[in-house]
């Protein structure tokens, strides 16, 4: 980990509110693994004051580049969408403890909801590179937020899409097709689960996961100040360990062990 000035290579608008930012970040690209994040200084000014954490969306190791995915929500991301190639950001990273792949699984169930897809592309890239099969469940508000699903070798990945407005894939929550899938495979030791998304989705999947015999990892999102475990602002309650820090103990945790209601 370290702190670097990183030049903007390009910024790609995905739909009305979602952008993909490509940064030259050689050192980070070489060492990052899926589930880790960078802590980005939006601008050299006092408002917005704090850095913003972003999951590493993708790594292009040969080019020394990383990609971040973000939705424009507040003041910080509104400033970000205005950046152009040649501008630069100050980044700390790669930070946190990401996904681990030391289990015996051969097929990964990957579930993303909304902007929870941010770390998932990097995760799928890595899983496929490791020779794992991937079953990818991806839910979003509407079809325009679902992108790039044809880029992977389709023989190694099975994709289930869902949208809340029914404009693409299953009409409803992505947890519905997931539940149907798990009804038949809950004891399948060749599986492992990887999840990132909004809290309501995570709680639902945690419930489903308790009926399965295999492991599930979740990447959590939380407001952060320092990003390195110092300020203790981004606490998460774990069922048998008390508070842990999302930034330095996570952001990836054992899904079954997270106490979502404190």
């Amino acid at each position: 980990m370290g702190a670097y000035h990183c030049q903007v290579i390009q910024q790609i608008q995905i739909d009305e509110h979602i952008y993909r930012l490509v940064l030259q970040a050689h050192e980070i690209a070489q060492t990052a693994y899926p589930g880790q994040f960078v802590h980005l200084r939006i601008a050299d000014q006092l408002n917005p004051l704090l850095r913003r954490p972003f999951s590493i969306h993708r790594v292009l190791r040969d080019k020394g580049q990383i990609e971040l995915l973000y939705r424009v929500i507040g003041r910080g991301t509104s400033l970000m969408k205005q950046t152009k190639p040649g501008d630069s950001y100050h980044l700390m990273g790669p930070l946190g403890k990401g996904f681990v792949f030391d289990g015996k699984f051969t097929t990964a169930i990957v579930v993303a909801g909304g902007m929870g897809v941010a770390p998932v592309f990097f995760l799928i890239d890595e899983l496929l590179a490791l020779g794992k099969s991937v079953i990818f469940f991806w839910g979003a508000r509407c079809g325009s937020e679902l992108f790039g699903v044809l880029q992977w070798n389709q023989s190694a990945i099975e994709i289930h899409l869902a949208t809340e407005d029914g404009s693409q894939g299953y009409h409803g929550m992505v947890t519905d097709p997931l539940q149907t899938f798990l009804n038949h495979r809950s004891e399948d030791a060749s599986l492992a689960g990887f999840v990132c998304g909004p809290r309501a989705m995570l709680k639902k999947i945690q419930l489903l996961s308790t009926r399965t015999s295999f492991e599930w990892q979740v990447s959590l999102e939380e407001t952060m100040a320092c990003g390195v475990g110092v300020c203790q602002g981004c606490a998460v309650m774990l069922k048998n360990e008390g508070f842990r820090m999302v930034c330095s103990d996570g952001p990836v945790f054992d899904l079954k062990n997270v106490a979502f209601d404190g």
Partner: peptide
Amino acid sequence: REGNPMPRIVETPCGMLNSIGLA
């Protein structure tokens, strides 16, 4: 001390509010 329940921090204009609870 375990510290306070979440949320513990929030950004404000040119500042931040915290309630960590001396964890």
